[in-house]
Design a protein around this nucleic acid. Structure first.
Lengths: 342, 342
DNA sequence: TTGTATGCGTTATCAA
DNA sequence: TTGATAACGCATACAA
C-alpha cells in the first residue's frame, strides 16, 4: 500500500510538505501543491487513518453501542446518528451487544450478565479511541453506572441516564399517551380500556400517567380495572383481549401496535372489526399498523429525530458546550381507520 | 490515557516484556507475568488498537458496507455477520450508504449517483485498513465493478457478483418460489395468479421461473395473463388486486408480504377473506405476515444465515482458502392460515 | 527470561 | 515556502 513517504519521494519534496498539502495548510506554493496533488491522484494514494489517529490522538470516529440492532427502534435511530455524523465528517463504528438475541429479557435485572457484555464493548470503544459514544437502548429504562472510566463523552438514546455527565434523549411517553387518549375522548369515548405493556416498564408507567391525565382533563374517573397488563407481544395481548373486551368499554388504548395486533386477532376470530365494534389506538407506528385491516391509528415515534438529537448533543458536549440533561421527543398521531365516533 | 510504557515503568520492566505478556507469548516468568498483569488490572490499562493496528498492519476489523440499514433485510444480515465476527475476535465497522433514503430507487440505473457514494465508502474502509469487506445489498441485482482497487478481500451479501474475485451469497429465489407454488398445487389449486414485484427485478424474474417450474411439474400450462406486476409495495398491489382477482383463479402467489397486504386490504374492503375466498401465499416472512388477519403463509428468508455464510466465506478468503463463487441460501415455508384446500 | 532498538505512517515543531 | 526530526503506542528482531 502506497504511503505518504512514497508520494514525497516521487515528488522530490518532504513528507511534511505532502502532509501540509493534504491537510489544507496554506503554507505551500501553488506550484508544488498542484504537482503533489497530481501525483496523489495518479497513484491513488489514500491516507492511513490508523496512523493519523495515532499521531493526532483523535480518530474522528463516533462509537455507537446498540443493545440490539434487531430491536425495531434501533436501525432508524442509528440511521439518524449516521446521517449527522456524515455531514460533520465523522466516521461511525457500531457495536451490537445483541442483548435480546442472547438472553431475551433475562438481562434486564441481571447486572452481571449485562456488564459482562457491556464492559468489553466500552473498553473496545476506548481502545479504538473513539471521540464519543452514543448508547442506543432497546427500550426505555434508567441506566445507572454507565461505565465512564475512560472519560469518553457519551450520550444515551432511548433510555434515561442516571449519571450527571451522561445526557439522554427519550420519547415523551406521558404526553404521547395523553394525546392518544385525548383523541379517543374527543371522539366521544368515555369508557376507555388500556392494553398495557409490561407492568414494571417505564414506558408502561409513563403512558398510564398520560392516560390518567387525559381522563382527568375530560373529567372522567380513572378506573384501574380497565387496565390490563399484557407484555409487549401479540400473544399475551390476544389472551387478554377477551377479558378486556368484556368490560364495559368502547375504546382501547393499546400501548404497542403489537398489542393491538393481538386484539385484532381476537376480533377477527369473532367476526368483529376495529373501528366499528370497538375503537383501538396503538403506539409505535410500526409497519404492521399500516397492514392491519382496518389500518391502525397509532402514535408514531420519531426515531430518526432521536438519533439526530442524540448525536447533536454529543457533538455539543465534545465541543465543551452546555447541554441539557434530558430531552423528551414528542410523538405524532397517525390517523388510520381503527377509531370510530360515538 | 495510560500506555504500555507507563505499565512497564511502574513494574520496572521493559515495554517488550509487557507486550509479550499481553500477547500471551510464553517467554516470561510466572512471577513477572503476575506482577505485570496485576498492575495492568489495577491501573485499568487498555491496549490502544490504533497503535496496534499501525504496528501490526492488521486491524482485526471487518468493514460492513450496507446499501441501507433501513431495508428490512439488512439489520438481520448484519446481526449474523457480527455474531461470527465476535466469535472470531474481530471488530466490525459499519458504513451505511443510505442509498434508498437519499434517492429512493433512482440510483439503481445511475452509476454516477451510485459511485459518488460507494467510492468514498470503499476508500474510507481502505483508509481504516479493514482486513476485509462485506457488502450488504438492499435487494438482489448484479453488481459489476465492485471497486477492488485496494486489494481488500470482499464478499457480497444479497446480491450477485459479476467479478471473479468477489463471491456472493444470495437467496435461492427460484427454488423458493417453486416450493411456494407447489404448496398451493398440493392443496388442489391449479389456477394460480401471481402478484409479482418490479418487472425488471432479479427476484421477480427468478421467482417467475420457479412458478413456471412448479406448474410444469404439475402439468399445468403457464398462462402469462395470470401474472401481474405491482412493484413491491402495498399500494400498487392494492390497485392491481381487483383485476387479478377477477380472473379465474383460486390462489395467488404474492412475491412479497407487502404485496399480499395490498390484496388483504382489497379483500377486507369487499368483505372477503384470505384462506377462505381466495388462497394467498406471501414471501419474506416480514413481521406483518404474522399480524395480518388471517395470518399469512409465506416463505421465510434466512437473513441471519446469509450474514453468517457471507462472513465465513470472507474469512476463508482472507485465509487464502478456496471459496465458491456463489452460494444460494434456501428459504423456508412458514405455514399460517391464508391458504385453503380446494 | 528480559531488554534495546527500530519502525509502522502520520503530524507537529522548529529550524533553515 | 520547505525540510529534518521527533513523537504517537505498540510489536518484533535481535542482543544480552
Amino acid at each position: 500500500m502506497i504511503t505518504l513517504k512514497d508520494i514525497a519521494k516521487e515528488c522530490g519534496v518532504s513528507t511534511a510538505t505532502v502532509s501540509n498539502i493534504l491537510n489544507g495548510k496554506n503554507k505551500v506554493s501553488e506550484e508544488t501543491r498542484d504537482r503533489v496533488l497530481k501525483v496523489v491522484k495518479d497513484r491513488g494514494y489514500k491516507l492511513n487513518y490508523v496512523a493519523q489517529g495515532l499521531r493526532r490522538q483523535k480518530t474522528q470516529t463516533i462509537g455507537v453501542i446498540a443493545e440490539d440492532i434487531a430491536q425495531f427502534t434501533t436501525p432508524e435511530i442509528i440511521e439518524g446518528i449516521m446521517e449527522v455524523c456524515e455531514e460533520r465528517g465523522y466516521r461511525t463504528i457500531v457495536q451490537n451487544l445483541r442483548l435480546y438475541a442472547r438472553w431475551q429479557d433475562l438481562w434486564f435485572d441481571n447486572d452481571k450478565m449485562y456488564y459482562s457484555v457491556m464492559n468489553p464493548a466500552v473498553q473496545e470503544m476506548a481502545s479504538i479511541r473513539v471521540d464519543g459514544i452514543v448508547y442506543v437502548a432497546g427500550h426505555a429504562r434508567k441506566i445507572h453506572r454507565f461505565p465512564n472510566d475512560y472519560q469518553i463523552p457519551s450520550v444515551l438514546a432511548y433510555a434515561y441516564s442516571q449519571e450527571e455527565e451522561v445526557p439522554s434523549v427519550v420519547i415523551d411517553d406521558e404526553e404521547a399517551a395523553r394525546v392518544a387518549v385525548d383523541y379517543l375522548v374527543k371522539r366521544g369515548h368515555t369508557k376507555i380500556g388500556v392494553m398495557a405493556g409490561e407492568q414494571e416498564n417505564i414506558h408502561t408507567k409513563l403512558r398510564i400517567l398520560g392516560y390518567q391525565k387525559a381522563l382527568y382533563d375530560a373529567g372522567i374517573l380513572y378506573n384501574p380495572e380497565l387496565v390490563t397488563y399484557a407484555g409487549w407481544g401479540k400473544e399475551l395481548s390476544y389472551n387478554a383481549a377477551e377479558a378486556l373486551l368484556s368490560k364495559d368499554i368502547t375504546a382501547i388504548f393499546s400501548m404497542s401496535d403489537r398489542n393491538a395486533g393481538g386484539i385484532y386477532k381476537y376480533l377477527f376470530e369473532h367476526g368483529k372489526q376495529a373501528g366499528k365494534d370497538i375503537s383501538i389506538i396503538g403506539f409505535d407506528d410500526e409497519m404492521i399498523s399500516d397492514f392491519m385491516t382496518p389500518g391502525l391509528t397509532t402514535m408514531k415515534i420519531d426515531l430518526l429525530g432521536i438519533g439526530k438529537k442524540a448525536i447533536e448533543m454529543l457533538f455539543d458536549k465534545m465541543e465543551g458546550k452546555e447541554v441539557s440533561k434530558e430531552i423528551k421527543m414528542p410523538c405524532r398521531l397517525i390517523e388510520r381507520a381503527s377509531v370510530g365516533r360515538i
